[in-house]
Amino acid sequence: MADKCDLCLLGLIILSSLLTGTSGVDDHVFISSGENVSLPCNNTLSDCKSTTWTYYNRFSHPVVVELIHGGINNKDTERHERLSLESDCSLNIKNVTEEDYGSYTCQQWMHVNGKDQKQGTDVYVYLHVLHVSVSPSSSSSSSSSSPTEISPGRSVTLSCQLYFYTGLSCDYWVSSGRIELLWVNQAGVDLKTDSRYQISSSSDQYRCIIITLTTTLLNEDNNREWRCQLTHRNQLKTSVRYTVKYSAQADSTTAVNPVHITHSQDPSTINTHVSKETHFKKEEELFSECVRIHTGPP
């Protein structure tokens, strides 16, 4: 029994060294829909001719999709026109949509002795997308009105949705306070403290968090700003600002126009935290198994 436990503990040491040093890098990137984003790849060789980028999303794309091969776009993918490589082989995605969220992997392949051989470690980048939609409604008429038409006296609902992809469950990230969505005013005050706004939250298979703001528009709401902001580990990562602008004519309609604000982040800091959370969890599970073997019946 002692031999088994010793072997288990040895495996734990080996696993710890692998997970903390040589098994690749995890990076988390937060972006608002409609923005452009660059996904980093830090395992590149002398140029991008060896670079391959793949995409996977177990919810919407359960099959791995090759986006870039040998530094060249795969023209068979629907979004190939929005993809390009930087000189450092980072993957550029133009006009990000909520469908772009998921796991991206950067690999290096070389043709050696007539065979393609992978070089170095994989780089994993998790792309999370913040998306906001508006749904005005009215108790009067106007069944033919546009979805973006709003005016004083009408009820409007802003839905802020986080498409979040990670190896750990969404509930874990939310309950632990690692990610949070808030609707705030121009001064940055949480709108949940104002009774005129109805704030609710939910989630589904694709969207980790959905936080909705519903209110009836007042005349003084002209030029009013509401902002949905995403924080990760109490650091603001990205936000979307909505500003209401009424036209001069009282009976005309006006749209709520989104302005995306993406805040810079320190990938090295995020990598360290995320990797340790995942790695320590695996280590604890293995250590528990060791303890069970050691203390179990002879």
Results as ranks from 00 to 15, higher is better:
Ala2Thr: 11
Asp6Cys: 14
Cys8Phe: 09
Leu12Thr: 12
Ile13Glu: 13
Ile14Cys: 08
Leu19Tyr: 11
Thr22Cys: 11
Phe30Asn: 08
Ser32Tyr: 00
Pro40Gly: 02
Cys41Asp: 13
Cys41Ile: 03
Leu45Lys: 13
Ser50Glu: 06
Thr51Asn: 06
Thr51Pro: 00
Tyr55Ile: 00
Asn57Leu: 01
Arg58Phe: 07
Phe59Asn: 07
His61Phe: 01
Val65Leu: 04
Val65Ala: 01
Glu66Asn: 08
Asn73Thr: 05
Asn73Gly: 00
Thr77Lys: 00
Thr77Phe: 01
Glu78Lys: 06
Glu78Ala: 07
Glu81Asp: 13
Glu86Lys: 10
Lys94Met: 07
Val96Pro: 05
Gly102Lys: 09
Gly102Leu: 00
Ser103Ile: 10
Cys106Ser: 08
Cys106Ile: 05
Met110Asn: 07
His111Ser: 06
Asn113Gln: 13
Gly114Thr: 11
Gly120Val: 05
Thr121Leu: 12
Thr121Arg: 14
Thr121Glu: 15
Val123Lys: 04
Val125Asp: 02
His131Ala: 08
His131Ser: 13
Ser133Ala: 14
Ser133Phe: 04
Ser135Tyr: 04
Pro136Asn: 04
Ser138Arg: 09
Ser139Asn: 13
Ser142Ile: 10
Pro147Thr: 04
Pro152Phe: 06
Val156Phe: 03
Leu162Arg: 09
Phe164Asp: 06
Tyr165Gln: 05
Asp171Gly: 07
Asp171Cys: 02
Tyr172Met: 09
Ser175Ala: 13
Asn185Phe: 02
Asn185Ile: 00
Lys192Arg: 15
Lys192Pro: 01
Asp194Tyr: 14
Asp194Arg: 13
Ser195Tyr: 10
Tyr197Asn: 14
Tyr197Glu: 07
Ile199Asp: 10
Ser200Ile: 04
Ser201Asp: 10
Ser202Trp: 03
Ser203Cys: 02
Asp204Arg: 02
Asp204Glu: 03
Cys208His: 01
Ile209Phe: 01
Ile211Glu: 15
Thr214Ala: 06
Asn219Gln: 15
Asn219Ser: 15
Glu220Trp: 14
Trp226Leu: 11
Trp226Phe: 15
Leu230Met: 08
Leu230Cys: 06
Asn234Trp: 03
Asn234Gly: 00
Val240Asp: 00
Arg241Phe: 00
Thr243Gln: 09
Val244Gly: 01
Lys245His: 14
Tyr246Ala: 08
Ser247Pro: 04
Asp251Lys: 05
Thr254Phe: 08
Thr254Asp: 09
Ala255Val: 04
Ala255Met: 02
Val259Ile: 01
Asp266Ser: 07
Pro267Arg: 03
Ile270Leu: 13
Thr272Ser: 13
His273Met: 06
Val274Gln: 05
Ser275Thr: 15
Lys276Leu: 12
Glu277Asp: 14
Glu283Ser: 15
Glu285Trp: 10
Phe287Gly: 06
Arg292Leu: 15
Arg292Phe: 10
Thr295Val: 10
